[in-house]
């Protein structure tokens, strides 16, 4: 089944396609080569406003502060993707294979370290490479390892705890934005003395949500919150 598609097209089609794509690539390459060596971009604006952003890492400042809308809507995209996956069916949580002892032992040592690392990445994101997305994905990796190595599926966590975890990031982000809208008159316009704390607060919630959402995406369907079996 995997080798299918080898002889699906005639040679003439393949060569024609190749020619077409080479034209596209040549056009794009030419466009890149004719660009000026130096561009103004937005880096000067970013560095001019870094003092009021509340963090020292420009990428975190752009993600949560200057272009907070992007990140807010991106959290919504994650949630919508998960809803799409859930609408396609439920995950088979009952047919579980007994994990190998080596895997259980390894995960038992590795998962706490990964959770610790997620916390470190979240904290260090304020002034060095790191932040909510990196921390969230490490958290999701820890969650997937735990799901793969656990003897029984954590059914008890699949009801409200899961849903609260999924919504926490988007909810916190929106709540902070709306509060600022009423207090200072601008959606997601942090006052510069509170910006650092607010960014850390939003990032903590976003980390948890990203981790939970990515791990739930790995399950590949809506887990059934049934009674104990």
């Amino acid at each position: 089944m995997s080798a299918a598609g080898r002889s699906r097209h005639s040679p003439a089609f393949r060569w024609g396609l190749l020619l077409l794509l080479l034209t596209v690539a040549g056009g794009l390459g030419y466009a890149l080569l004719t660009l000026p060596d130096q561009a103004v971009g937005l880096s000067e604006q970013v560095s001019a406003n870094m003092a009021t952003s509340g963090v020292q890492n420009p990428v975190t400042a752009v993600l949560i502060n200057f272009r907070g809308y992007d990140t807010l809507l991106e959290m919504a995209v994650l949630l919508v993707a998960l809803l799409g996956v859930w609408s396609l069916g439920s995950a088979e949580v009952h047919r579980r294979i007994d994990p190998q002892p080596v895997l259980s032992l390894l995960v038992g040592g590795l998962a706490p370290l990964m959770i610790l690392m997620a916390g470190y990445l979240l904290w260090v994101g304020a002034n060095a490479p790191g932040g909510a997305f990196q921390a969230g994905s490490v958290l999701a990796a820890a969650g997937i390892l735990l799901l793969l190595s656990s003897k029984r599926f954590p059914v008890r966590l699949m009801g409200w705890p899961l849903r609260i975890g999924l919504l926490l990031g988007l909810g916190t982000f929106t709540a902070v934005g709306m509060t600022l809208l009423f207090v200072s008159g601008g959606f997601l316009q942090y006052p510069s003395n509170l910006a650092g704390a607010l960014i850390l607060f939003i990032e903590a919630a976003a980390t948890l949500s990203i981790g939970v959402t990515l791990a739930a995406l790995f399950l590949g369907g809506r887990p059934q919150a049934g009674p104990y079996r």
Binding site: D37, Q38, S43
Partner: peptide, 30 residues
């Protein structure tokens, strides 16, 4: 984004790419 006049690259494309990577994985899962 690296074609800036200073030493530091432009952070805005970096932020866009980070969100892009996360959107790509959620689209892949779907």
């Amino acid at each position: 984004g690296g074609r800036t006049t200073g030493a530091e690259p432009d952070p805005v494309p970096h932020a866009m790419v980070i969100t892009g990577i996360v959107v790509a994985i959620s689209a892949t899962a779907l």
